[in-house]
C-alpha cells in the first residue's frame, strides 16, 4: 500500500552509506589498533507510513544502525536525511545536539525488554508521561489526560496509570512501552525486537496492535528483528544485513518469492517450518559469521556461500538494483537461483 506512496512523495528518511566504526584499543596508552566495522554500508529509504523490516543475525549491525538513526550514538560516516514535520530536510548524522533536540519528539523508540525498559520506581503516569515532561509538553493535568488517552490507545485501562510496572505482565508492559513511544506524537518509530521477549500468544496481540496503530496514526516503522516470519508479517519492505552491510533490500513479497542474495535464501531455509510434513533440513548454512573487525576479502559472505566463485573471493560486490526496487549485494544476483 505504501510502495506507491514512496514513488510520489519524497521519502521521510533516506540513509546513505551509513558507517559506524568502534575503535579497538590496546595497551596502557589505549592505542587504536583497528576498528570493528559494526555498520559499513547501509543504504535505504523509508516512505511515510511504511514499515521497513531490518533483519540479520546477532552482531550484523542492525541494532547499531538503528541507534545511529536515533542518534543515540554518533555515526562515523554517511548521511541520514530526514524530512521534518515542517518540510525541511536535515541530515541527522551531522546535526548539532541543540538542533537535534526539537526533532527528538518526532523520532521515538520501542525497546526489546519490557522488564528493563520501564522505570520500576515510577508509576505508569510518570513512565508514559516522561517524554512529555522532557519535551516540555503540557502541565501535570494535561499530561495525565494525555497518558489516559495513550493507555486507552494501546488497550490498557486509564485507571492503571497510578500503578507501578511490576503489577503488569510482559505483554502489558510492552503495551506501556508502546504508549510511551507514542506520547509525543512521533512520525518515525524505531522498534528494536519489540516482540522477541514475549510469549507466542502475546506476540500476536502486540503485532496486531502495532499494525492497528500504524493505520490509525500514519506511523512510519523501522522494525528491527531477527525472526523472519515476524518481520515478513509486519513489513512492506525488508532489508537484510550481514556483517555490517546491507546485502538485500526488496518488497516483502518479492524477497520471499525470489531472494536475490544467497544469504537471504540461507536465512529463509534455516527457519524451521511449523509443519511436520515440511522437512526443512536441506543445505544448512555451515560455518560462522565472520568478525566485523576482520571481515574476509571480497564478498563478506563468500566463505559460507555455496555458489562462491573466484571473483567472489577477490572483488567486493556493490549493492545494485536487480529489478525495480529490488537491491542485492551479489555478483550473480539476477543470473542465478539461490
Amino acid at each position: 500500500m505504501s510502495g506507491t506512496a514512496a514513488a510520489s512523495s519524497p521519502p521521510l528518511l533516506e540513509v546513505r552509506g551509513l558507517q559506524k566504526f568502534f575503535p579497538i584499543t590496546r595497551g596502557f596508552l589505549q592505542r587504536v589498533v583497528g576498528h570493528v566495522r559494526a555498520v559499513d554500508g547501509v543504504d535505504f529509504t523509508l516512505a511515510e507510513g511504511e514499515t521497513l523490516g531490518l533483519v540479520g543475525e546477532s552482531g550484523c549491525g542492525k541494532t547499531t544502525a538503528s541507534r545511529c538513526i536515533l542518534r543515540a550514538i554518533d555515526p562515523t560516516g554517511g548521511s541520514i536525511l530526514y524530512r521534518t514535520r515542517d518540510g525541511r530536510t536535515v541530515d541527522l548524522a551531522t546535526l548539532a545536539p541543540r538542533e537535534l533536540l526539537p526533532l527528538r519528539a518526532e523520532i521515538q523508540m520501542i525497546f526489546q525488554d519490557p522488564f528493563g525498559s520501564l522505570n520500576p520506581r515510577m508509576t505508569l503516569l510518570d513512565n508514559v508521561g516522561e517524554p512529555l515532561l522532557v519535551n516540555g509538553m503540557g502541565n501535570r493535568r494535561e499530561r495525565a489526560d494525555r497518558v489516559a488517552e495513550l493507555l486507552r490507545l494501546v488497550g490498557l485501562r486509564p485507571e492503571f496509570m497510578h500503578r507501578f510496572p511490576h503489577a503488569f505482565s510482559g505483554g502489558q508492559r510492552q503495551r506501556i512501552g508502546i504508549a510511551r513511544a507514542l506520547a509525543t506524537n512521533p512520525r518515525l518509530v524505531v522498534a528494536d525486537e519489540p516482540v522477541s521477549a514475549l510469549d507466542v500468544s502475546i506476540q500476536a496481540q502486540v503485532l496486531n496492535l502495532l499494525l492497528e496503530l500504524q493505520a490509525r496514526l500514519k506511523l512510519t516503522f523501522l522494525f528491527v528483528a531477527h525472526d523472519l516470519s515476524v518481520v515478513r508479517h509486519i513489513s512492506d519492505r525488508i532489508a537484510v544485513m550481514y556483517v555490517g552491510q546491507l546485502v538485500e533490500l526488496a518488497r516483502t513479497d518479492a524477497l520471499f518469492r525470489r531472494p536475490q542474495h544467497p544469504y537471504t535464501a540461507a536465512l529463509m531455509r534455516a527457519v524451521p517450518a511449523a509443519d511436520p510434513r515440511v522437512r526443512s533440513d536441506d543445505a544448512i548454512l555451515a560455518g560462522e559469521v565472520p568478525s566485523p573487525a576482520a571481515p574476509p576479502q571480497g564478498c563478506y559472505f563468500n566463505p559460507r556461500c555455496r555458489h562462491a566463485q573466484q571473483r567472489c573471493r577477490v572483488e567486493a560486490p556493490a549493492l545494485r538494483e536487480i529489478a525495480p526496487g529490488h537491491f542485492s549485494r551479489c555478483h550473480f544476483a539476477g543470473e542465478m537461483e539461490f
Partner: peptide
C-alpha cells in the same frame, strides 16, 4: 497465532 512464512502479511 504464529505468523508463518507463507500466510498473508500485514
Amino acid at each position: 497465532s504464529i505468523p508463518s512464512l507463507y500466510g498473508e502479511t500485514r
